[in-house]
Design a binder for these strands. Structure first.
Lengths: 226, 226
DNA sequence: TAAAATAGAACAAATGCTCGTTATTTCTTG
DNA sequence: CAAGAAATAACGAGCATTTGTTCTATTTTA
């Protein structure tokens, strides 16, 4: 699959995140009308991402966010009860989308090689589409409270397990070589993460996501295909 | 080479960093006696690393640092003129050590395969020994001023170039396959970085640095060896 | 005892958050 | 369908606290 095809197949993640955040936090948000909430959550999350990526969440002040989102301090606090809550909710909702999309695409495949290619591609495509969110999530996870941080770690391990399960299945079907598949998955994950952690570098070198996906698949295949 | 052997071959990086920092900033540091400076720089850097890794440099206050290092606020400011300067100096000195050690080991090798193995091993061993420094450096680089940030990026690209040069040399000698060696080096770098970015995960799984180095070498060899 | 090093109170600026007020939208009623 | 009333949303100055930094007083060292 090409990235361009992928884009056509998935809904707009931005609005999804805002709608889901509203539904899940309806009781905490002091604003009642859905349309208003979604419109402003989008402003808040957009500004959080923009400022957060450029100077870090800790360094972002509520005044920065107010200026960036176009909402007053007071308005911000009628959507979220604290600065930290913005981070928690935003990262939490993003994680859900990631899980949903990955599973939706993986369920279509049966062959281990196709599954491996799919998980590599879709992970890269997702991180391409939401690259700022991923970068932000990676860099700011340590600023979350312990339980939210745990969720973040679990989310990482979940993706890794998707990969290691595929490797193990492939080995059992005599398609992949034997080996430490957990460590293998870990290393593959590292390569996938590099795509959004070093976005600027790859852009400067004019390496696109389709090319990167194909390269990673070749790299991994060389080691695992029998 | 094993990590245990590596450790015997290199001097204590902690004291090296402090001594180098003193020599280079003698004029800026208001304290005159070298022994005093080095003793206290070590306390300051240790505390910076400890607090910085756990809560991030931005969130670390000078009072945290004062408590953590056992020095008063006044004392801290007779070693550094600002909080940011601590970060700049510490990261800068660390980068120097990394460069020195990598080059010292690489110069001993001639064969591309041996060079590749060396750069993988030494990079991993260095990041094992200084893993907190590397993690801290990676996470806080974006909080540096533009010129220091540029140095940080250059330092990353330098390591990558070490790898890509080896791959290209190996290709010219018909030992390695053809391909996009810059992209290859980039991906190898990502795997190397994972070692210190996910230190906790590997520790929990009881995977040691020697085993990880051997795995990465096998992974890379499968793709590159003709 | 003079120089060097450290201490920690004091200061201005900045920060997260609150709360009384104002503006806007929606509903009610003659 | 007005126009007043009620509900909802947005505003932003102000509060207590915390922050990086400075400065003078004190202690330590040689």
């Amino acid at each position: 699959m090409k990235y361009s095809e992928f884009l056509k197949l998935i809904p707009d993640s931005k609005i999804d995140i805002c709608r889901a955040a509203f539904l899940e936090h309806k009781d905490k948000i002091q604003i009642k009308k859905e349309a208003v909430v979604i419109k402003n959550l989008e402003k808040i999350f957009d500004a959080t991402l923009k400022i957060g990526v450029s100077k870090g969440f800790q360094a972002m002040t509520m005044r920065d966010l107010s200026a960036g989102s176009g909402l007053s301090m007071g308005a911000l606090y009628s959507y979220f009860s604290s600065k930290d809550e913005i981070l928690s909710v935003y990262l939490g909702q993003g994680r859900k989308i990631v899980k949903q999309v990955l599973e939706a695409f993986l369920v279509k495949e049966n062959d281990p090689v196709a599954k491996l290619e799919t998980v590599i591609q879709i992970h890269l495509f997702l991180t391409e589409k939401m690259h700022q969110w991923f970068y932000f999530s990676y860099m700011e996870a340590k600023n979350l409270n312990p339980e939210e941080m745990e969720k973040s770690i679990q989310s990482e391990l979940y993706t890794e397990k998707l990969v290691s399960d595929i490797l193990i299945e492939g080995y059992k079907k005599n398609i992949f070589k034997d080996g430490d598949h957990v460590l293998g998955a870990s290393v593959i994950k590292a390569m996938l993460q590099d795509w959004y952690l070093k976005r600027g570098k790859y852009a400067r070198r004019k390496i696109g996501v389709d090319h990167y996906a194909q390269f990673i698949m070749a790299f991994v295949s060389a080691f695992y295909l029998v």
